[in-house]
Nucleic acid binder design. Structure first.
Lengths: 215, 215
DNA sequence: TAGATTGTTAATCGATTAACAATC
DNA sequence: TAGATTGTTAATCGATTAACAATC
């Protein structure tokens, strides 16, 4: 179970393994070989075995992998056996959409608070959580053991807000603002730059069309 | 200006270049060297030059790159000089949030329609666009020159809906459903798997905490 | 025991970085 | 012309794939 210096390429694939294993588990499948999984997921069996072996041996020669065991282990690696408390900064459309998404709760990501600087939103409820004024966020973070801040605010305020949150103990950001945060060493940032993603799609669409025209 | 077989690693970096160059442009900066950009973006100058040279020479020895020119060129590469028509399938919280996000419009991504199978949402307006029943989507796609379908529906229906849309001429999907679409060759898919992203953050948070404990 | 399939080492491939000649 | 900085080739690094011995 030794883990050190696992590359982000591997980490990035774990949630997808987790998803497929969850589906197999739900279908009642008991064991799976790297070859079967390879066919299902369209990645090489070799890569699957290499990826799993970064975390120690989960399989058994001649048998393959036990689906439920592997599912649980990957869940643990991803930290899904622990509870994470999160707050959403910015209660606009996107913030509310994320707040309403119950599936995160199922995985142990518990929404504890929502904040906005727009008074029109104060008191508005997203599930059980009331939107609070931004002025209250510092105290709230200090007193409620918050791990993750979800930033669904405009880029103009994101960098400043992140700074304040770090000063009050936030350890991780799920950043939807279209800006690079530049936080101190050891603070984790996961960016979701939606417009970047849309531009990538646009490029690939464009490129394919052009190739078609050439023949 | 020859382009062929550009790796997705390079494509994935273009939107970020585009963003930084846009900011420099707005600040009135006229020229930038790969070295300066390197300092700003925290990537190597060598990588910057290699990336740009995939698309031909945008710079000038001894001078660097003209900010506005480079900005425009990368925009063109990303297809942002063209207009794209898109529809949103699934008018729930996330669908509405994306529909309301005006910035996409600024880049030429025009929302043309929204669809949902929930009658309670029919007629609801997101900006100028009324939510329509799912039954209307096939005809709408055929008659309105739609390029991109945004899927903000549950995974259970996403695969089937995608199939129908492909049959009616959709060429690209921006997929927020937590499932792999598996479309025919030549149809573009850009996945935004939010829960995968959150799990990655969870992993990195976990890992860092563990390392701290060991000392 | 024979067959299957892992864990792991070695080979290959691709992406990043370094170096430098070309040239503005 | 001298200085700066690109475009591009070569070197390095890391990630993926192939191969196979270990072992259930």
């Amino acid at each position: 179970m030794e883990e050190k210096g696992i590359s982000q390429a591997v980490i990035g694939r774990l949630p997808r393994y987790f998803r497929y294993l969850g589906e197999l588990k739900d279908e009642g499948v008991e064991r799976v070989s790297s070859q079967e999984l390879s066919g299902l997921m369209h990645v090489t069996a070799s890569q699957i075995r290499q990826d799993f072996n970064n975390f120690g041996g989960f399989g058994q020669q001649g048998y393959g992998y036990n689906v439920e065991f592997l599912y649980e282990e990957i869940g643990k690696i991803l930290g899904l056996n622990k509870t994470h408390h999160l707050i959403i900064i910015g209660a606009g459309n996107l913030g509310q959409a994320l707040g309403n998404y119950m599936n995160f709760e199922r995985r142990g990501f518990i929404l504890k608070g929502m904040f906005d600087k727009n008074p029109a939103l104060y008191g508005k409820k997203v599930r059980e959580i009331e939107v609070q004024p931004m002025e209250k966020v510092e105290e709230f973070v200090r007193e409620n053991d918050i791990d993750i801040a979800v930033l669904t605010i405009p880029k103009s305020s994101a960098v400043g807000v992140a700074e304040v949150l770090v000063a009050n103990g936030i350890k991780a950001f799920w950043n939807f603002a279209h800006v690079d945060l530049n936080v101190p060493e050891g603070i984790q940032v996961e960016n979701v730059h939606l417009s970047d993603s849309l531009m990538k799609l646009s490029y690939n669409l464009e490129r394919y069309n052009q190739e078609q025209e050439k023949g």
